[in-house]
Amino acid sequence: MAIVNIAGKDVDVDEEGYLTNLADWNEDVAAYLAQEEKVEMTESHWEVVNFLREYYNEYQIAPAIRVLTKAIAKKLGPDKGNNKYLYELFPYGPAKQACKIAGLPKPTGCI
């Protein structure tokens, strides 16, 4: 557990850098978390991050990568719902990195 100051606001993160409280999330926080992950956020990145937040709001979990890929394919099309596309955006694992930037906990079933 640590506290980081983002754009003038104190935010709790866990030992791996995930937000402790989802409610702390905003775009500034996301930008900070992305910077920590060395991910340069483009519109495509935001699309995935926002998708994850919507998924979490609906189901209360961060999806496993396989589930995320399938769900994105269903909503945004197969050219985005595939491992290659998602790993290009988030090289260290879309479920892990994108979830972190989206302010979600680490995916359940992430092994």
């Binding site: 189901y59 209360q60 589930v67 079933g109």
Partner: peptide
């Protein structure tokens, strides 16, 4: 406590 009931609806995706 966390309401985990919505998660049952995610099972289909799994």
């Amino acid at each position: 406590q966390k309401n985990f009931s919505p998660t049952y609806r995610a099972l289909e995706g799994y």
